[in-house]
């Protein structure tokens, strides 16, 4: 069910400012790919081109192709809203809908897709909460507000919300940077489970997390401020962290720059 992502020469703009240039990469199904790099190098921007969330910002646009299996997400006649229905996203700060209960949060995406049958919703909510390793902690209080949980639990709630609609791909934009170390490890373990069902792309500024969790790692960087960010190198995580091909990659991961 999860799909391969192929980016071909992706450029993203904020107005006339080119934020990323010429990004091409392949992400295999059922893998975790981490994107690392210094601040402002465009890794989050690239992530948002995958689910066409970048263009929501006024004046922002994308050039290039992003293929999901054989379909170009930026092709003529492709509805961005439909794209976002098939690609889930988890954000840096957990953002459950504050006025909704835990149940309603998880069911939000399903209801958007027109599913009203309460039995179907019940099953989907339980399945998603189990998948996000949150079921046992919240099964007694599904009607309570989502905002009453701890940070790590809220983030897992957002993960449950994202996977409830069974997306092909799961995008995670620095999902653990607002969390404490134990919650972070819990979510990293979760990713290892989730990759059996989804293709996962994670942006992280924590290199050690990329090293622990991903199968492949891509390194983004820019020449100087004002320049667009580029993909410098992408390879298996083992190679990147033991013997990267590019000197810039090695300089970054050893902390000699950035």
């Amino acid at each position: 069910m999860s799909k391969r992502i192929v980016a071909e020469d992706v450029n993203a703009f904020y107005g006339s400012f080119r934020a990323i240039a010429g990004v091409s990469l392949t992400i295999e199904p059922n893998t975790v790919t981490a994107l690392i790099g210094p601040s402002g190098c465009g890794k989050s921007t690239f992530l948002r081109t995958i689910n066409r969330l970048h263009e929501v910002i006024p004046g922002a646009r994308v050039e290039g192709k992003v293929m999901l299996d054989s379909e170009d997400l930026y092709g003529a006649g492709v509805d961005a809203v439909a794209v976002r229905r098939t690609i889930g996203m988890v954000f840096q700060r957990p953002n459950p809908f504050p006025t909704m209960s835990i149940y309603d949060n998880v069911a939000a995406g399903l209801r958007l897709n027109g599913i009203k049958n309460s039995k179907v919703l019940d099953e989907a909510v339980e399945r998603s909460l189990r998948g996000a390793n949150l079921w046992n902690e919240v099964k007694e209080r599904l009607a309570k507000p989502g905002a009453g949980l701890s940070g790590g639990q809220q983030q897992r709630l957002c993960i449950a919300r994202a996977i409830a609609v069974e997306p092909q791909v799961l995008l995670m934009d620095e999902p653990c940077s607002a969390l404490d170390p134990i919650s972070t490890l819990a979510i990293e373990d979760l990713m290892t489970d989730l990759k059996q069902r989804y293709t996962i792309v994670i942006v992280t500024h924590n290199m050690q997390q990329a090293a622990r969790v991903s199968d492949r790692t891509g390194f983004f960087s820019l020449e100087a401020t004002g320049e667009p960010g580029r993909l410098i190198e992408i390879d298996t995580t083992e190679k990147i962290f033991s013997n990267p091909s590019e000197k810039r990659t090695e300089d970054y991961i050893t902390g000699r720059f950035g």
Binding site: Q208, A211, R212, T237, E238, F241, S242
Partner: peptide, 9 residues
Amino acid sequence: AVQLLARQQ
């Protein structure tokens, strides 16, 4: 062992 050092801190 080297992989563990590189990836798992």
